[in-house]
Amino acid sequence: MDTTHQLIVLILFAVTSFVLAADPSPLQDFCVAIDEPHDACITSNLYYSDSMFVNGKFCKNPVLVVAEDFTLGGLNIPGNTSNQLGVFVTPATVAQLPGLNTLGISLVRIDYAPYGGLNPPHTHPRATEALVVLEGTLYVGFVTSNPENRLISKVLYEGDVFVFPQGLIHFQFNIGKTKAVAFAGLGSQNPGVITIANAVFGSNPPISDDVLAKAFQIDKKLVDYLQAQFWTKTN
């Protein structure tokens, strides 16, 4: 095989690999999520199955879909930030808005208590996040992966936008004297969230204190103390 043919093969291989690595495009207009399949129905003299299984969810029969499947209210209501972290997250993912299923997007509202409200270090395993500040002043940042572990951070004001890449640990902290409010769009209908402190010190069953003591280079008594804390639910 000559050099030209080898180059063509390599290009085709690279393009094919890229396509196979990407999420598949939807092959239908929508797939409104339902918890369980229901009985079949007959509409307009045609027989329909009431559901099918797509991307981890059953799909509602398209002929039964209504506007309410794509509508969610309440994101104008402030969340209760009277907790240890001073933060409340109001999600609009596929769990709350069935019409998002297979569409690859979701939304959250985040409320922060005056000075000190913290959305603690966490990751979204399935989504990049774009956050816009509607009110207040936030110190935000994310940490790059090993071996650099570089902190990329910024103070944001009303109207500012910041992007947190998929899977990277990130946080938001209210450094203003008044409450703060932000909205964030996420690149998945089910982005997931792993709060680092909860995952490491609040797992069930607990991670061995031998493991954590060595990993963090701290005394086992401190590990036991951290594992005994009650982590706050923030949504």
Rank of each mutant, 00 (worst) to 15 (best):
A67C: 10
P62Y: 12
R109G: 00
R150N: 10
P78A: 09
Q96K: 07
A127V: 03
L138Q: 01
P125Q: 12
L107W: 05
T90I: 03
I105K: 04
Y139F: 15
I77T: 14
S82W: 09
T123A: 12
P91N: 05
I105T: 13
T81C: 14
E68Y: 04
A92S: 14
P114I: 07
E135T: 13
A113C: 06
L100D: 01
F142S: 01
A67E: 14
F88A: 15
V143H: 03
V133L: 04
S106N: 08
P98K: 02
E148K: 05
G104L: 04
I110F: 06
N149D: 11
G104E: 09
G104P: 04
I105W: 08
D69C: 10
V63D: 10
Y112H: 14
T128Q: 11
A95N: 13
P114R: 01
S82M: 13
G74Y: 09
N83T: 07
P121R: 02
L118R: 04
N61T: 09
P121C: 11
R126F: 12
L138W: 02
T128M: 14
T137I: 14
Y112L: 06
P78V: 12
I105C: 06
R109W: 07
L151P: 00
L134S: 14
V133I: 15
A67Q: 15
P78W: 07
P147G: 03
Y112Q: 04
G73Y: 14
N83P: 01
H122S: 04
A113T: 02
N101L: 02
V94G: 02
E68S: 15
L138S: 00
Q96H: 13
T71H: 12
G141M: 03
V65Q: 03
L85S: 09
P62A: 11
P62M: 15
H124M: 06
V94Q: 00
N80P: 08
N80M: 10
L131Y: 02
R150C: 10
P98R: 05
T137D: 03
L97I: 10
N76H: 15
P62K: 11
V87E: 07
G116E: 02
V87S: 06
E68Q: 15
N83A: 14
I77G: 03
L103R: 12
G116F: 03
L97Q: 07
T128W: 07
D111V: 04
G136M: 05
A95D: 15
R109F: 05
V65H: 05
V108G: 02
S82A: 14
P62F: 12
L131D: 01
